[in-house]
Each structure stands twice: as structure tokens, then as C-alpha cells.
Write a protein that binds this DNA or RNA. Structure first.
Lengths: 376, 376
DNA sequence: GTGAAAGCGCTAACAC
DNA sequence: GTGTTAGCGCTTTCAC
């Protein structure tokens, strides 16, 4: 009640404001600059710059003095000027999809990985009305030192063009040789999931694949290898990446004479849809059928669903990408040798991040007869 | 196969690059600037500036000529310099929560509302390790012209301080008189939901409330009013905003002698948890009980759940906030009169956005006996 | 329509 | 340790 306004020592210059402090000349009507701080502290602007960059060249005492003066007049460093002056920016641009839960998880970890190490991240979203080129162009116009793209749909060549010479790192999307990438060990994930089911005693596994999704090829292949290794009977159904596609698949399965004893869904969303329909039709999980999700750990853990899933380590994905971005910032964009400037470059780097099988309540031993129940 | 690298006409100055075009002096080793474009086009930098700002003062022909020259040497406008030079930026900063699905929806619409009108948005995320002050400070350091905050947790006073004089607009969070806000018509939503249930013939409604959530007070009150208006028997249970809290509530309800014939959940996530437990226990929806979700239209529509819900109009929330932000950018931050600079200002603006009841498959007429079944 | 010139607020090299 | 100085790339007068 009756609290004073924000403690700000300057005011907009519309001629109506009463600046609280008249002590600093020139403080009224515009935000204070380093010059104002220098004047207030009785030092040079260079000194102020040193203090605010944490650069060597000032005593502890001076630093304190300057910071106090800055606080007194309400100085806030101007990132625009800083950005402009530093010829090569070390800021890292991040292109993500609004509406992709997995990307937000990643965003969270990218913030930690980059800003935790003293860096700065600049976000640019892709939405229904804002395509990847636009998003990337924004990042280019800020002259980021490197760009991290999440689940890009653009082809390699187009990505490179849109990035316009800025080093690129792709997360969760396989890229060709001209682009650095970080991705989960999808094949290993499949191996873990299939192995888990085999250990429980399952003899047949169905994989609900998805075409054209990030990592689709690796998972497909990983599934086939793992099934062969474990001597199981594997089958594949093409589905999608949404709850709807999972529900769809469930309906198709229910038309069969008997259900498979276990299913690995392409991701958690598909698993959810699958489970919903099955449960409503009276199928018990995991008594009648075991379900493994994949990919999007956030849903499985946040939901009440208690889904066994192949969890991606977003933290390590983010950290890997941050490291690559920093490396590439120092060395410039990818090229194969002196004078070359080619997509065919040999030295793109890839990093594979381990995945983990999180066993929860949707997997268990199969029925004694080895198969699921028939549909009712 | 063998595709050439990106069509870029300049190269980093590490001494190893062979610039593709030697035509533009100074083009090797740094990105082209307006000066390079001017030289290439044979005009002045001022003209180039005019062209790229779409400012009046150049013929259509000249514009074309300049743009072609720019394209030839691969010029991209430098947003940093532009930002710095324009004394008062018109960019709009947006603070959002990573991991809040509702915010992502809003982000999407904010991009459309702001960039669709020729503006620029600068994003700043709040995550587990990046608090609201930090996020806001980033926006301040870019000298945004205005800031839109989504579901802020900071108190008004703290928000104002963190924004440091930049005009603030809050979405989906009630604020005091010093801050502009846009929010859904939560009371009207309740009225619609209760009315719908009454029309179907329900006599008793349970509201699964949540404390401390955005809009909680408004919904609570709206529920009580609507129940009285419709002459229904209303009751309130305190729950939360997650699937878990909904599941919890379901368990509590199942212990009762009989279920209420209808439930309005605080939001869709809670509704989901509620439904899951009920369905597994053999309760049919909507035959045995009707369920209305609320608030987070994204989940209900994206999910296979087919949930009747009170949908928020994120598009209008976003547009309302964009309009307020633009207005405030022109007039400066809120103050009550000449010389005043106070939180107690009288002229903060609020906008209430209509909500809509989306009727789907989880609501229907009650059982003939007027109540739900007892627990089994 | 054009060109020259003065900054926006900061950094970084250099003298003192 | 400190002050001086010259830009970063753009916008925006102003006189031609």
C-alpha cells in the first residue's frame, strides 16, 4: 500500500517526468550510459567498460566503486551496442519449434548449458506462420556466432544457405557431412527396449514406426537388429508421431485375432493414444500387453501414465550442441581444407548421446500362453 | 551430388577462403555492409538505408536496382546496428515459460500478431535455472520498446522493477493497477460450462478448483455465481493443475457413496487425470458422469481425448497484448499524471478476452436417476 | 533524388 | 591503473 514506484533514477524524456536523482548530469530523459557512470564515479569510460566486462585492469576497490556508482544512477549495460562493437559475436542462436514439448525441454537445458558457461542465447521460434528460413534469417541478422537448430525440417543445403555462413549445429535431426550434429543413440535405445521385453519373457514385439520423423531410420534399423539378436519375432506397423496415430494403430491391432504381447511405440505420444484405446476396450496393461514409449521423456514422466520409455538425455544433447557451437565459433564454419567452402566438407562433427530405458508400470511379463488376448 | 556450397559471396577472414566474387572491393573477410551495397549499386549509403527500411525517398526502379546489388554480394541487414541507432526501439520482448504448453500456443500467436504487423519480437525464456528477473534483465539490455510477460510469478512491484521502466503487459495473470493486462473472461467461461450442464439436465456440479493458479479467484467466483443462477447444487473440491491432481480427486470421489453427475475441472490436464482413473474403474463418460475441462485448449484439441472444454482464445489474448504493447511504446510507461511515476497510476489498461465452450464427447445428459453411479 | 557527416553506446588498442 | 581515441554498421539530418 502506497509503495513507491520502481527505484529508477532516470526517466523518459517526455517532459513530464520528475527524475528522482538530479545528481547525475544528463541523467534525465535517457537511460544512463557508461559515460554517465564514468562521470558519477569520477573515472573513465574505459574503466567502466573493464569493470562490466570483468576484464583485467582494475583493482577490486575500483570495481566496487564503479558498480556502486552504476547502481546509484540505474545503469544497465546495453547489449545492442556491445553486440555491435564486438566484431565477432559469441552469442549462440537457437532455432526451436513453438509447440514441440521436446524442444522446450531442450531449450531449458540449452539455457543452462550456454548461459551457465557465460554465454548468451538468442531465441528464434518456428511456428505455423513463421518458417525456418525466417527464423534463421533473424538469427543471422543478429550476427550470432553460431546457431543451434532443433529438429529442422529444411534440407541440409537449405539450412546452410539460410544460416548464411554462420556455423550450424543440429540437434535431434540427422544431417549430412556439412553440418555438425548431436543426436540420441536411437539404435541403442531400441536394443535396450527389445532386450528388456525379451528378459521379461516376451516372444513377439511390434514396433510402431513413423516415417520421415527425426531418427526414424535409426530406430527402424535398431529395432530389426535387436529383434534378430534376441531371437524374437518382430513386426513393424507404420504409424505416426501423435496420440491419434497411436489410437489408430490400436484399432487396427484390435481387429487381429490376437494382440502382440508387446509394443514399442515410436514416441510417448503415440504410446499414449495406443494405451487409451486399449484400456477402454478392456485390455489390461501390462497384464495383457506391455507398452514401451520412446523419445519424449517429458510426457511420460509428467503424465500420470507411468509409461516405460526410452528416455533421451536432453541435458547431454544440449551440452553436446553447446560444445560444438563454441568450438565452431572459434574455428569458423565447416570447410574441408584451405580455400574450400563446400558442403562436402569432411570435418563435420557428430556426437551420439546415450539413451536410457526408464522402466515404469507399462511393461511386465507376458501371459502364460505367450500372447496377448484376442480382441473382445 | 556434388552440389556447390551455399551461395555466399563473402567469406570469413581467416586467410584461407576464396571469395566467390571478387567484384566487390572489401567483400572478402567480412560480411558486406551497406557501404558495400552502395558501392556495388553505385549509389549512396543513405539510399541503401532508405531502400531497406522501406522508407519513402526512392523510386521503384532504384529500389529494385539496390536490392539486386545487395543480393549479388549477399548483404544481410545488421539488426544490431539498426537497433543501436534507432534511439527508441520498437521491438517487443516476450517473457515466457519453457515447459508451459499454454505459453507455446501463445508464443505462436504473438509471433503472428507482432511480426504480422511489421514488428519484431525478442524472446526470453524462464526455466528452472533462469528466473524471471534474469529473463527480464535480458530484455531490458536489448532495450525493447515494450515487454509482454506470460503468466509471471513475480509480484507487480518486482515486475516493474525488473522491467526497469520499460512498459509492461501481462497475459493470463491478473495484475494490479500499475500494469497493463490481458486475460480471459474466466467468469463467463464458468457460466457457459455450468449453463451447458444445466441444459443437459444435470442437477449437481462439482468444481475441481485450484488455489494460487492464474485466474483461480475469478473461476471460483464465476462458478458460484453460475450455480446460483441456474439453481443447481454446486460443490467445490480443492485440487490442482496437473494430471496427478485430477487422478487424486478421482480417487477421492470414488470413495463417496455416489459420484456427482458432472465435474468441471480446473484445467484440461486435471480433467485428463480425472478421466483416466474413472475410466479404469469402469465409469463411462459421459454416460455415468460428464466432464468439462478448462483453460488449456491445446491439450484437449490435440489429444485424442475429445474433451468438452472452456477454450481460451490465445489468438485474441496475443493480439490484445500486442496492441497494448504498441500503444504503450508510443506513450511511454504508465504514470498517472504529470511528473508522477507511480505504481498507483490510474491508467493501466485491462482487456478481457471472450472464451468459448467447445462441446465435445465428454458431456451428455445425466442418468435417469439424476446422479452418477456409486463406486464399484 | 544524392553525398557528407554526426552520432547510437560500447570495446579495445594504445598511450600515459 | 587510467585516460584517449577510433571505430562496429546503421539511421538521420542537412545542404545540394
Amino acid at each position: 500500500m502506497g509503495a513507491p514506484g520502481p527505484r529508477r533514477k532516470w526517466a523518459y524524456a517526455d517532459g513530464m517526468s520528475s527524475s528522482i536523482s538530479g545528481s547525475s548530469p544528463g541523467a534525465a530523459g535517457r537511460r544512463p550510459t557508461m559515460r554517465d557512470v564514468a562521470r558519477e564515479a569520477g573515472v573513465s569510460t574505459a574503466l567502466v567498460s573493464i569493470v562490466f566486462r570483468d576484464a583485467p585492469g582494475a583493482s577490486e576497490q575500483t570495481r566496487k566503486h564503479v558498480r556502486e556508482a552504476a547502481g546509484r544512477i540505474g545503469y544497465v549495460v546495453d547489449e545492442r551496442a556491445r553486440l555491435l562493437r564486438r566484431s565477432r559475436s559469441t552469442d549462440i542462436g537457437v532455432m526451436f519449434q513453438t509447440g514441440q514439448p521436446f524442444h522446450h525441454q531442450l531449450l531449458d537445458d540449452l539455457y543452462s548449458a550456454i548461459e551457465g558457461a557465460g554465454g548468451t542465447v538468442i531465441l528464434s521460434g518456428v511456428s505455423s506462420e513463421r518458417d525456418e528460413r525466417t527464423a534463421l534469417a533473424g538469427l543471422v541478422s543478429y550476427r550470432c556466432g553460431a546457431v543451434i537448430v532443433l529438429g529442422a525440417a529444411l534440407r541440409d543445403q537449405q539450412l546452410l544457405e539460410a544460416a548464411d555462413g554462420i556455423p550450424l549445429v543440429s540437434i535431434a535431426r540427422p544431417t549430412g557431412r556439412g553440418i555438425d550434429w548431436v543426436s540420441s543413440d536411437d539404435r541403442r535405445g531400441m536394443s535396450l527396449a527389445v532386450g528388456h521385453l525379451a528378459d521379461l519373457g516376451h516372444r513377439d514385439v511390434l514396433f510402431a514406426a513413423a516415417e520421415d520423423a527425426a531418427g526414424a531410420a535409426e530406430r527402424h534399423q535398431g529395432f530389426e537388429e535387436a529383434v534378430a539378436e534376441n531371437g524374437l519375432h518382430g513386426s513393424i506397423e507404420i504409424g505416426g508421431t501423435t496420440e491419434l496415430s497411436g489410437a489408430d494403430l490400436a484399432l487396427r491391432l484390435l481387429e487381429r485375432e490376437r494382440l502382440p504381447s508387446s509394443v514399442i511405440a515410436f514416441n510417448d505420444r503415440a504410446a499414449l493414444g495406443l494405451m487409451d484405446v486399449l484400456v477402454r476396450r478392456g485390455v489390461s496393461i501390462p497384464q495383457d500387453i506391455s507398452i514401451v514409449g520412446s523419445d519424449d521423456s517429458e510426457i511420460a514422466s509428467r503424465h500420470y501414465v507411468d509409461l516405460t520409455t526410452i528416455a533421451q538425455d536432453t541435458r547431454r544433447l544440449a551440452e553436446g550442441a553447446a560444445v560444438l557451437a563454441r568450438e565452431r565459433m572459434q574455428s569458423g564454419p565447416i570447410r574441408s581444407g584451405p580455400g574450400a567452402m563446400s558442403t562436402e566438407s569432411m570435418d563435420a562433427q557428430g556426437r551420439v548421446v546415450p539413451v536410457e530405458l526408464v522402466v515404469r508400470g507399462t511393461t511386465g511379463p507376458p501371459r502364460a500362453d505367450g500372447g496377448g488376448p484376442g480382441p473382445r
